[in-house]
Design a protein around this nucleic acid. Sequence first.
RNA 1: GGCCCCGUAGCUCAACUGGAUAGAGCAACAGCCUUCUAAGCUGUGGGUUGCAGAUUCGAAUUCUGCCGGGGUCACCA
Length: 549
Amino acid sequence: MKAQLQSQLTAILSDLQYPPVDVVFDRPKVEAHGDLTTNVAMMLAKAAGKPPRQVAQSIVEKLKVDDSFLASVEIAGPGFINFRFAQKYVVESAKKILQQGSLFGKSNAGKGKKTNLEWVSANPTGLLHAGHGRQVLLGQVIGNLLEWTGHAVTREYYFNNAGNQMRTLAESIYARYRQELGDEYPFPEEGYKGEYIVEIAKEIISLKGDSLRETDTERSYFKTFGEAWCFAKIKETLARLNVKHDVFFNEDSLYTSGKIKEVTEEFKKKDLAYDSEGAVWFRATKFGADKDRVIVKSTGEPTYRLPDIAYHREKFRRGFELIVDIFGADHIATIPDVLNGVQALGYDTKDVKVIIHQMVSFVHGEEIVKMSKRNAKTYTLDDLIDEVGVDAVAYFFVMRSVGTHLEFDIALAKEQSDKNPVYYLQYAHARIASILRHAESEEINVRDMEAMLSTTDFSLIKEKEEIDLLKKLLEFPELVQSCALSFEPHRLTTYLREVAETFHRFYHEHRVIAEDKKLMQARLTVCLMTKIVIANGCKILSVSCPEKM
RNA sequence: GGCCCCGUAGCUCAACUGGAUAGAGCAACAGCCUUCUAAGCUGUGGGUUGCAGAUUCGAAUUCUGCCGGGGUCACCA
């Protein structure tokens, strides 16, 4: 609808010989201002040498107002042009919702762009904790949004199994292993104190008994076993949330293939790295940092920066045109170094989109839930899913914009009532499903879209609440695009809430199942359209939409 | 202290990326079920958008300076 109006206006502007400008529309906040509004007249006023309202007048005169497209065009305020679509046009446009069904909302805005989405990437040294949920779901929904807008998305997990933390894991398990065998054995100071470490140790005992007590001096069995154990658990948790990665990129592979060395040498050649104090330093100060950074420790091991840089170069080499990374705010400091490094290697970092989400705090009603890392009893993502369910987890974590600190109210998420926004949305869907069941008992085949389209008298859709609803539904494809392009999934939750609200109002005002069969069928199509939009939206959100509640 | 994010109704947050009268939910109050799911709907009250300047037709949104909250500043990742 917007596109059609836009092309009309652009043609008119060139007819009138105004300088070319982007015609941008806004949705007015106030209903009296119509369905769409544009400020082109104000933009052009200076160049045209006329007051904005006069410019607006010249444009408006060229527009045709009838019931096939525009119901009204008005000049308002300092020079806004407000448009209102004709009801007939709205209803006609809405037919495509039925035609497209589960595809309604998909587009090719991304033009098949090869896109790499990396997220979660938690180290295999423990379980996902509740706070990880935000990242897990944000990535999931952003991935869905990118797919819905025609990006060729590779979902990737950077599997970080090199470096210090794996040694710490092995030592922690070994210490618990010895303790479980009844030995006095000190637990490493920086070790992982979680109860799962004990669990792992017990499993090792059941498999190997005490045979590893003295033999595995390298702790290689403990490392391998622990890594596999943690990773399996992480994958299990992700699977509960329907999160699937296409590629698990192994950090180790960067070492074995020599990619790490390659980067170091290239930096040295470009005088971006130098040796000092037995370590290799990256000239971060050349890129505006306050000091240079170590990329290879004096022990000969790289710091995380080097593999991260090498990894991102590989993403470019693998042919990705858009690279999306999702990180928590606690990783914020590492990002500039990596981006600078990648740029120094000759890649354009404008194709790298880094999404940083703020931290999550958990409350239980009034009470603050403590999530101490030192405490052995960490609140895991699994615990959270057990407590509030998959749908609430999925919805709550994307409900807020990434820039704000998220307060997750467990008591609210758990509550099966009108307070809970997830249920509000799902309830609308279930309500529609219920109406459709009644329709089927009236012998209307609501599943046959072809028949519904060809036999329904759409001119019977004319109540204000119906038209409002259809207008709302028709916003969906554009909304999906704008959420995807701006990487702002939370706007989808806001939108779906509005859809549910608009539907509930329609439901309240007008009966669907009624004596008048013609009217009933027309209204059933409105229900079907709403159901499609809610279902498609929930699909993107990874939230289920029940037929019954 | 440097850098990053945030500050909007009593609470949790929106605001289509610079638009017109800043909106929802919860909480409070008043109504609506013999009819398709009341997990719903309708209405009322509630604001100097942290403060002070600047930019322009127009600022919650952009810029500057303060104030307050969080994050981050390793030869950990």
